[in-house]
Each structure stands twice: as structure tokens, then as C-alpha cells.
């Protein structure tokens, strides 16, 4: 029984990290149709930013979250403005362009700070562990779970209860009609991409105490996060949450029963089958076009 609860908690922890990383990707893909292969590199930039703030400015992780969000969002804005906005009607080419951008970011970091592993300290206040259902679990993992849910809530509010969100939803439905009502689509897209990038940066900063920081750390994340988005369904934020935790529990569970390779293989095959038979994702109801 204890083992089962422990497994579930582990799954939730994996799921919250997946959600953190996938949220930004989901927004960018869902609203702009761009598969952002540089997303993993935004995660990596966030982790490095946490390390820089800590090592050179002496800022703790929690205090540097807001600046990290802003820094990585600024990166995202520049990339949208000067690269992606030039590729308006070529969705396949955006994969290639973002991949190239990703390589550049990775290589630039490698050249500037070297490729050795870096470590970020846990915030002292969250370094101990606490009991959840009688199972001791690190406070930081609980904190990550809460933050990931909070960020999801904030994003949902942003999309559904603010003017920018409304404009974005209008553009998704029909870009030219939205434009004729005076909505500046270019600006909204740039902001959306910047927001998604900022979220990725936050994700990177938040996971940096758990994993070591290296220039190629993002590659693994982008694949996993992409699977979350595909499973959850494009344009469905709630679907992203559900699928993040489903995938978290699944890979935690299978890895416990079998091993990591089998877990990865099964998840990938499941995704392949899903795309073939339900490309719109598990959690999107068909709405009128």
C-alpha cells in the first residue's frame, strides 16, 4: 500500500515537471501552430540564468524567478520578431528554423560558460522533507507541484480573462477578421511566444536544483513536453494538465514495474498510435470549425 502511494506521488512529481515544461510549448503550438524545437533550449537558458543569478549575484532561486522569466521571455520575443514572423505560412520550416536557433543557443552557452555540469542550490527553506499521506517527500517536490498548478491557473486566467488573451483567441479563430477589427496580430504573436518562452525559462530554473545543468539538458525535455502536448490536444490547456500527469504516472509506473527503456518505448509507441488514430489529442472535443 505504502509502495503504491509512493509510486503515485513519484508520478505526480514527474508530472508536475512535465507540466511546467509543456505549458509554454502548448501555448505556442496551440495558438501559433509553431512546433518550437528551441523550447528545450529556453528551459536550459532558464536553468543557466538561475545558476548565474546564484553564483554571481548571490540571489536565491526563489528571488530570481521573476527576473529569469523576464530574461528568457525577452529572448523569445527577439526570436519571434526576427526569425519566426518571417515564416508566416510555412509551418514545416518553423520546425527547422527553431531547431537551428536551438543549436545556436546551445552552442553559444557552451562557448561562454563551458560544457561542464553546473549545480544550483535548493532554496534552504524547502530543503527538508515533509509527510504526505505518511510518506516522507521532499518539500521542494511539493513546492514544484503547487507552482505548476499555479502557473497553469495563471495561464488559464491570462487566456480567458484578459484583453490580450481575448485578442489571441480571436486571432486563432480567424486571423484576418481579427486584424480587420484592429487587432495587431504580429504584436500578439510576439507576446505569446515571449510568454511561452518565459514559462520554459521558469521551468528550467525550477528543475535546476533537482538535475544538473548542462548545455544539452533541454533536448530530453522538448521531446517529453511535445508528447504531453500531442496527448493533451492542441489548444486545450486542461488537456495539457491531464496528459502531463497521465504521462508522469505512466512512465513512473512502467519504470517501476519494468525498466526505463521499456517505459520510454511504450510511451513513444502509445504516442505514435495516438497520433494515427486521434491526431486531435485525447482531451479535445470536436468543435465547430
Amino acid at each position: 500500500m505504502d509502495q503504491l502511494i509512493e509510486q503515485i506521488v513519484t508520478g505526480l512529481s514527474i508530472g508536475s515537471i512535465l507540466l511546467l515544461v509543456a505549458l509554454g510549448l502548448s501555448i505556442i503550438y496551440g495558438s501559433m501552430g509553431i512546433i518550437n524545437l528551441a523550447h528545450g533550449e529556453f528551459v536550459m537558458l532558464g536553468a543557466y540564468a538561475a545558476w548565474v543569478f546564484h553564483t554571481y549575484l548571490g540571489l536565491g532561486l526563489l528571488a530570481s524567478l521573476v527576473p529569469i522569466f523576464l530574461v528568457v521571455a525577452a529572448f523569445g520575443w527577439v526570436i519571434e520578431r526576427y526569425v519566426l514572423s518571417l515564416l508566416n505560412n510555412r509551418p514545416l520550416d518553423t520546425i527547422l528554423a527553431t531547431w537551428g536557433v536551438g543549436i545556436m543557443l546551445q552552442q553559444a552557452v557552451r562557448l561562454m560558460v563551458g560544457s561542464e555540469l553546473r549545480y544550483v542550490q535548493l532554496p534552504p527553506a524547502l530543503a527538508d522533507s515533509m509527510d504526505v499521506f505518511g510518506i516522507p517527500i521532499s518539500s521542494y517536490r511539493v513546492f514544484l507541484f503547487v507552482v505548476s498548478i499555479a502557473l497553469f491557473g495563471a495561464t488559464w486566467l491570462l487566456m480567458n480573462r484578459t484583453t490580450v488573451g481575448m485578442k489571441l483567441r480571436a486571432i486563432i479563430q480567424d486571423r484576418s477578421v481579427a486584424a480587420s477589427f484592429g487587432i495587431n496580430a504580429k504584436r500578439v504573436y510576439a507576446l505569446t511566444f515571449a510568454y511561452g518562452a518565459g514559462l520554459a525559462g521558469l521551468a528550467g530554473a525550477l528543475v535546476s536544483p533537482l538535475k544538473s545543468v548542462s548545455p544539452d539538458m533541454g533536448t530530453g525535455y522538448v521531446v517529453d513536453a511535445f508528447m504531453v502536448v500531442v496527448l493533451g490536444g492542441v489548444q486545450s490547456l486542461a488537456g495539457t494538465v491531464a496528459s502531463a500527469f497521465i504521462l508522469g504516472e505512466l512512465s513512473g509506473g512502467i519504470a517501476f514495474l519494468q525498466n526505463d527503456t521499456v517505459a520510454k518505448t511504450i510511451v513513444l509507441l502509445a504516442i505514435v498510435v495516438l497520433i494515427r488514430f486521434r491526431p486531435e489529442g485525447l482531451f479535445t472535443a470536436r468543435v465547430r470549425a
Binding site: 518571417l86 515564416l87 527547422l96 528554423a97 531547431w99 537551428g100 536557433v101 543549436i103 545556436m104 552552442q107
Partner: peptide, 10 residues
């Protein structure tokens, strides 16, 4: 190479 690639795509 990354930069070249992005430029070619664009």
C-alpha cells in the same frame, strides 16, 4: 552552422 541553417531556411 546553426546560424547558416536558420538563414537558409528563412
Amino acid at each position: 552552422m546553426g546560424a547558416l541553417f536558420v538563414l537558409v531556411v528563412l
